[in-house]
Design a protein around this nucleic acid. Structure first.
Lengths: 199, 199
DNA sequence: CATGTTGGTCAACGTCTGTTGGCAACGATA
DNA sequence: TATCGTTGCCAACAGACGTTGACCAACATG
């Protein structure tokens, strides 16, 4: 379906002969982490799914933490906030998130692991800081309130992912994407741009 | 299928001599499950914290799953929907949830475990079905849409708990409860009672 | 007193975990 | 052909895990 191998960026890839194996390991790792979480996704299970020996995982990724770090190196590819009208940011964010989440399982892996593994949680905080927060700073009216507004947005977006893809509450899992967008876009838009409700 | 946890047993308590130990085990279990999740909350660690032998846990709760079931047997004590005005249900729900979450760690334990353990997820689906869904059926205008509306509400409430208590995004963790209520109450109210936005 | 039940500790079991080092086959280079 | 780094499998390690059963001390009841 997808091949989101995290772009060996500027430095030219050495193109080793083992690249297919490395990719197979990463793909299997993402699948196991997404389905089982950090502890229950064993190196042995990942290796078996990638049809190689467990020791190969260690050779190529050092240890389990290194494997996880490599498996969830992900870019949300959030839309450029300056390229869309300010009053459509909510809808754009929701549809973008929903699409990202449906199309690959890295995000589910990250969410599942982030809840029980500290490195996973730290990774999620990093993504929040580096990707969602800058967008909020550009979109919301008072940039001083951007962190709180971004936190509210993430609470709604991650909460949807949690109930839909992880806990699988039946009504949440069966909602149509268009319906989700219709409900959530105004909420997110509100969190981003509505005046502070006051306390 | 359903468990028989003596949560609030009307039948006269046998009042065994070991009740203090049993309570100590449950308390330690809740703390470890909340802090570490299912896999990393080992029986040995729980026993050590409760200052007893690991084998006692097995004797009193059968196995680890039984211990978990007993530790997270919880009643959300949701307010009676018929006792509050329909247009205040959102605010009431948010403040109630926030209060429950701040005051005891069972909910955090449940959330952490529900994400990686299937029994935990099933327990959360049960709570959703038995406690939040009935409330939604009474509050929202079209009871046929109650499941979807309840799912949206839970996505926002659990998403807040996730970012605030589990992932600990700094802006989410530092928000004042009053501010959270001011932002979330209209959202929840909207999910409960606003007309369907259409697709 | 004798006896059975309960509360508790201790040591061990079998299994699974991440991780390591050795060894065989391959591919390119010389 | 001989050499050398790479790719891969195999067997094993030490530690942690859930779980079990033997054993002891205190108590309650006949």
């Amino acid at each position: 379906m997808n091949d989101s191998t995290p772009a060996t960026p500027a430095p030219a890839a050495p193109a080793r002969r083992s690249d297919t194996t490395r990719r197979a390991i990463l793909e299997a790792a993402r699948e196991r982490f997404a389905a089982d979480g950090y502890e229950r996704a064993t190196i042995r299970a990942i290796a078996q799914q990638a049809k190689i020996d467990p020791s190969m995982v260690m050779r190529y990724y050092g240890n389990k933490e290194g494997l996880f770090a490599a498996a969830v190196a992900i870019d949300l590819k959030l839309p450029d906030p300056s390229s869309l009208p300010r009053d459509e940011a909510g809808r754009a964010l929701v549809t973008h998130f929903l699409h990202q989440w449906e199309e690959n399982e890295v995000l589910t892996a990250l969410l599942r692991v982030g809840v029980t593994n500290d490195a996973g949680a730290e990774r999620m905080r990093g993504i929040f800081n580096d990707q969602l927060l800058p967008l909020a700073r550009r979109v919301c009216p008072d940039s001083e309130q951007a962190p709180a507004r971004a936190a509210l947005v993430s609470s709604q977006l991650l909460g949807l992912a949690l109930t839909r893809y992880v806990l699988r509450f039946p009504p949440a899992a069966h909602l149509h994407p268009e319906e989700i967008t219709a409900w959530l876009a105004p909420t997110v838009q509100h969190y981003l741009t509505a005046p502070h409700p006051g306390v």
